[in-house]
Design a protein around this nucleic acid. Structure first.
Lengths: 325, 325
DNA sequence: CAATCATCATGAGTTTTATTCATGTTTAAT
DNA sequence: ATTAAACATGAATAAAACTCATGATGATTG
């Protein structure tokens, strides 16, 4: 037989009340039950847990060690139990968020701030700077929500909630020769072979420009240069150090200010959809559903040039509307 | 009903094995038993714990939360269980030591070093700088051994193992007028009323000179000055800033070097006995019994002027021998 | 696509464990 | 010494944990 929480709870209560009778009362048991219980524990461990004939009650070293264990773990069990109850009722929960798309901080931060007001009980955590694959971590339970544009259909048990569709665009210097040479508003992959790509400092697989544009065409850029911040990337582009792919909504303000020019990636433009990946069973939870709503609202309120995934799907079906923004 | 460790163990094993059948094998149960067990847990918490029809096995958020709890607390339970087993067998244990007497570091450190070699499994900790009463902490289980010269007979469940008896002596400057004035080797409390006392920086109640010499006679010294280290206290005495009570064994080397002179406190000398206080049930433990032996050996090997408590008791009974050292 | 195999669920029956009840023993207080 | 409160104990009972036998489900394969 093994230690059980029941034993630790009883022992803790024995210390608290100072007598079997009162401890039994608190546990809604008889004094006899506790007497049997402690005797069994003592038999199991081969030593006394407390000194019977003594007032006030005294514990032996073994008893004290078990009390210490109880002090250590019982509160944790309580917390877990509350978490489960809240999870069942949908009142609150944990929301460990990771984002794959670096620019997304732009809308995620305001969204989180708004959300926090409505759900102060939800334990929010933003797991940036992770060096593990986020979607498996979501399945494992280390994360609760992943913002990604690359759903993995292999992973079971996940639901991908579309947030919005956006266009990946190429930021290019106003003085760049391509702007003059091309008689069109879009580039082919081959036309970027001589350019330096400015990117976020993350793995190549997580950059849409490579995964969905250059790599499929077998084009390698003249160089790759990284920058942490979007504003730095734009600055490098503006000063002619290279070109850079950014979501249209991230690029918008810099276009307005006339810092850089914009080209579409390919004739159709490189559209993709951003999803919030969550575990299926969490999807219905009010606190999560509301987070998704808040996130979407924040995005459509603040980001220029994005579309609902549905609208974009319709647009793709009827090519005449493709370029509408 | 409440969460029990059995549930957490089963769930962890389910994750480890990936199936009810294999988890049941490992637990020496039938698959049916586990099926019933998990169903009950789910009923209790009002939600599924894992997704049945799925390979590989997937857990729900609730299941993951319980797994996390298990990962958190099950290892702690294991550790406690091992501790209890070792406590039962007397192989090893914990030894959190506190000392009331500041000078005792002088022999405690070598004793600990010797002891460590023989009992590498025992978790040794020296709780110095405590600001709580050490004997109650010993009863409570926060400490396992307290070196004290003031046993408290009120506290039940403690055993006081005598280490040795020693004499509290007064260190006094070689040029001090008292040395000339007195025609004897001892002082009365009243004769210290004009002196500054140099003491360790601890509460007055913990200083034998006050508790057993000055306070009973109602004598207040001209001043109190503190120093952290014995050597500093002796230095202050040597330079005439005051007098200072120290155990004879701590004073010995400074007398030898001729830094200070020594006077007895009262005609009989102020003898007291140093005890190692332990909880009664720990007393028989081999690892503890051996610590006491090592400590005593170290003391008698290194300290000059100490006596066994028994010898001192005999000496006190026959006054003619009182002053023998 | 049926056949097969492995896994899991289920209900009744059984064993084990937890608890109570009735009563005796010990302890501390008066 | 007497008494009251607390605790221990063994038998009886209630509750739980578990098994067995079997049926359902899902994945695999020829």
């Amino acid at each position: 037989m093994m230690i059980e929480l029941r034993h630790l709870r009883a022992l803790s209560l024995l210390r608290e009340t100072g007598s079997l009778v009162r401890a039994a009362e608190r546990l809604h048991l008889t004094q006899s039950a506790l007497s049997h219980l402690f005797r069994e524990m003592e038999d199991r461990h081969g030593q006394e847990l407390f000194v019977r004939k003594s007032r006030p009650l005294r514990f032996t070293s073994a008893g004290l060690r078990l009390l210490q264990l109880g002090d250590d773990i019982l509160p944790r069990v309580e917390v877990a139990q509350r978490d489960l109850a809240r999870l069942a009722s949908g009142q609150a929960g944990r929301l460990n968020i990771a984002i794959e798309c670096h620019s997304c901080y732009q809308w995620l931060m305001p969204a989180l701030n708004t959300y926090r007001d409505g759900w102060p009980e939800v334990e929010l955590d933003l797991c940036s700077g992770f060096h593990f694959a986020p979607l498996p971590a979501l399945v494992r339970g280390d994360l609760d929500l992943v913002v990604t544009s690359n759903p993995d259909p292999e992973l079971k048990g996940l639901h991908y909630e579309p947030l919005f569709s956006f266009e990946m665009c190429l930021a290019i210097s106003l003085k760049h020769s391509l702007l003059q040479e091309l008689k069109r508003r879009w580039v082919e992959p081959q036309e970027l072979a001589k350019e330096v790509q400015i990117t976020y400092p993350v793995e190549r697989e997580r950059l849409d420009i490579f995964q969905h544009f250059l790599d499929p065409a077998g084009v390698e850029p003249a160089g790759i240069r990284t920058a942490e911040l979007t504003v730095m990337m734009v600055q490098l582009v503006a000063s002619g150090r290279g070109v850079c792919a950014l979501p249209n909504w991230a690029l918008y303000e810099y276009l307005q200010k006339g810092f850089v020019a914009q080209l579409q990636l390919g004739r159709e433009g490189l559209w993709s959809t951003l999803y919030a990946a969550v575990r299926e069973d969490l999807r219905e939870q009010p606190y999560l559903a509301d987070f998704l709503k808040t996130a979407r609202n924040t995005c459509f309120a603040n980001l220029q040039g994005i579309r609902t995934a549905r609208a974009r799907a319709r647009a793709r079906a009827s090519p005449t509307m493709t370029e509408a923004t």
